[in-house]
């Protein structure tokens, strides 16, 4: 059964109004939905990221769930320890890492890879705002090519890491991409992840108004456009089998690109080139979808 808005409204989330997030924050939309699915029997491990600040300063917290704030590089390792302790003590608790893209694809990749390889029974959620936003918009390994950040003032020259595929190559039971622009798809994936045992990974596309430089009210719209232009395809890999979960009618990439000033240097020809990359990836995913197993 798919999750409906009524299911979500009935469930209790762990986000309290009046946090330190920026207006229009995509990551908080993601958290509001995720915490509803994950439920009250959940503890979060949060490495340095926007959520370190969004929580608000001591002695108050805008998150009504237990949180272990942890060092940048080691969220997945700390979560492994938490989960194993619960296992040792005979407690059944959801242990969830809630991390940004820097703490996931860059500095935290080693601990993440180790936990995935060991098959730790945790859910790792990366809310991906495609750069180091908490430190003021510097490029990360998840920043898309051509995007302006404060450390790539002329636009990034390199392609981002394909983190969901990197995690999937560890042959973990569940990997998915999601977007705040498709909240029900996100909710369903979390629901599925929650029911699976072992290492589960979800990367949520989370638009960032100040970081990507778009009007604050367009967070959800951009999150949806990313999917509809195939810039951020939504898929899941369950036990090695890939399925593209949302197959929208393709919109021109230009619509997504031109809404954000981080791509303001892009000429139309360059958008055309990016369009080719996007289609290549999309077709590759469809190809993988036809295979028995991806990994």
């Amino acid at each position: 059964m798919s999750i409906t808005i009524h299911d979500l409204r009935k469930s209790e989330g762990s986000y309290l109004p009046g946090s330190a997030s920026c207006p229009g924050c995509g990551a908080t939309i993601a958290f509001r939905i995720a915490s509803r699915i994950l439920g009250p029997n959940t503890v979060y491990v949060i490495p340095a990221c926007c959520f370190s600040i969004i929580q608000s300063p001591y002695p108050r917290s805008a998150i009504s769930a237990p949180i272990l704030n942890f060092a940048f590089a080691a969220a997945a390792a700390a979560a492994s320890g938490v989960q194993r302790a619960y296992k040792f003590l005979g407690k059944d608790v959801n242990v969830v890492v809630w991390a940004g893209d820097g703490g996931t694809v860059d500095i935290g990749i080693q601990a993440l890879s180790g936990a995935a390889e060991r098959g730790e029974n945790i859910i790792y959620i990366c809310y991906d705002n495609e750069a180091y936003m908490n430190t003021g918009i510097q490029r990360s390994g998840a920043t898309p090519i051509k995007a302006i950040t404060k450390t790539t003032p002329m636009g990034k020259q390199e392609m981002p890491k394909d983190m969901p595929m990197i995690v999937a190559a560890h042959r973990v039971p569940y990997v998915a991409t999601a977007s705040v622009g498709y909240p029900f798809d996100l909710a369903n994936k979390l629901e599925k992840a929650k029911r699976i045992k072992g290492f589960r990974y979800i990367q949520i596309f989370s638009p960032c108004p100040p970081g990507w430089d778009f009007p604050v009210e367009k967070t959800a719209e951009i999150g949806k456009l990313a999917v509809d232009t195939y810039f951020w395809p939504l898929y899941e890999i369950e036990e090695g089998k890939l399925r593209v979960t949302i197959k929208p009618r393709k919109k021109p990439l230009k619509e997504f690109i031109r809404m954000q000033r981080r791509f303001e240097f892009l000429k139309d020809e360059e958008i055309e080139e990016m369009e080719k990359l996007v289609m290549e990836k999309w077709n590759f995913l469809l190809h993988l979808e036809r295979s028995e197993r991806v990994f």
Partner: peptide, 17 residues
């Protein structure tokens, strides 16, 4: 221990923003 308790308006009256 640096332990914080949840409450609404943890950052204050953000409506003022």
């Amino acid at each position: 221990i640096p332990v914080s308790k949840p409450r609404r308006g943890a950052t204050g009256e953000t409506g003022l923003w």
